[in-house]
Amino acid sequence: MTGTTDSPAEPVIVLEQLVKFFGRFAALRDISDRFAAGRLYVVLGDNGAGKSTLLRVVAGLMEPSQGSVTLLGTRKLREVAHRVGYMGHAPLLYDELSGMENLRYFAGLYGLHNDSVGSNAMQMVGLDPELLRRVGQYSQGMRQRLSLARAVLHDPDLILLDEPFSNVDVHSARAMAAVLGHVRDNGKTIVVVTHQAALIEGVADDFVHMSAGQIVRREAVLRRAVTTNSGAEAVR
């Protein structure tokens, strides 16, 4: 796998002149870009740069005001919903249910009724599927890891993550970054929005810098660091 920015293969995400307004505020200002398959993109930027909005629009949670999103070759995002995983800024989990109860329900939404789906996902992020306590009693790190498990339990080809490391202890963050690297190595595309680049530098392929609703700069990490942690690649 070479580190060229533009993969010759069909890109997983194509953004064309994407604009999103909230009233008179332009959260996304004319973004046209492509994201290639099999890479881990890290989207960086200040608060209010439009990172989360971009992710929500790509996930199909928000209609863009102008422009279009093409995911996995189609503009009808619902048709590829089963191939996309989304982890929101909030945990997207029911506090009153246990980890497995949550995952069992969400797996059902994807037509997966086998319990092993949930327990595999939990094990992948380093949680014990037997854990009985409710998610409301989880630590922030555990909750974020479970949230990641929820986002990937249906084995999606494209994974969108919004601030997965917020309020997470370093140990959990490392574990999550390792999971992401592993998933990427299996050919999946991952887009991570974060302001804590240091936690994921080791596995990132591309850094996408956003500012004031636009993508201002993209940098590819030329030499993929093997999943050992090496902060030397810091592209800042």
Partner: peptide, 15 residues
């Protein structure tokens, strides 16, 4: 008017 505001915001003047 909204569209005009939008155009202004798009050019980046609204921050």
């Amino acid at each position: 008017v909204e569209a005009k505001h939008a155009a202004v915001a798009l050019q980046g003047g609204s921050r």
